[in-house]
Amino acid sequence: MAEIDSADVRNAESTRRWLSSRQDLWGASANNDTLIETLTRFCQFAGKSPDEMVDDCLRPGKAGETLTLRTRARRQYMDLIELFEGAVRSRPQGNIARSFLIHNGIAMNPGILP
């Protein structure tokens, strides 16, 4: 698989959905470049493109019109983000990866308690 770069990440449909949803909910974002940079780093860590990660977690329902959450894949990405967070030693960067999945319809959160 070719190395994922920030242009690929920025142009992915799931990335645009994430940034648009964030913008709608929270208003103007300070700096999308930082978000893209961190997501790119996470994509490289996972070895997957943004769209591939979302597709891993959501599969089409029987009728094909709705998407169903794949709980095992979601769990795997939650664990992977924790590893990423540990590798970069940054909860905010881990939360950027979580935010990407959350705004694509995949609920998740980090542990809060020590």
Partner: peptide, 16 residues
């Protein structure tokens, strides 16, 4: 409210 939620997310280390 949205400012409060965002502040809480930061306080507890949650994503936004």
């Amino acid at each position: 409210r949205m400012d409060e939620v965002r502040g809480l997310a930061r306080k507890f280390g949650l994503p936004d």
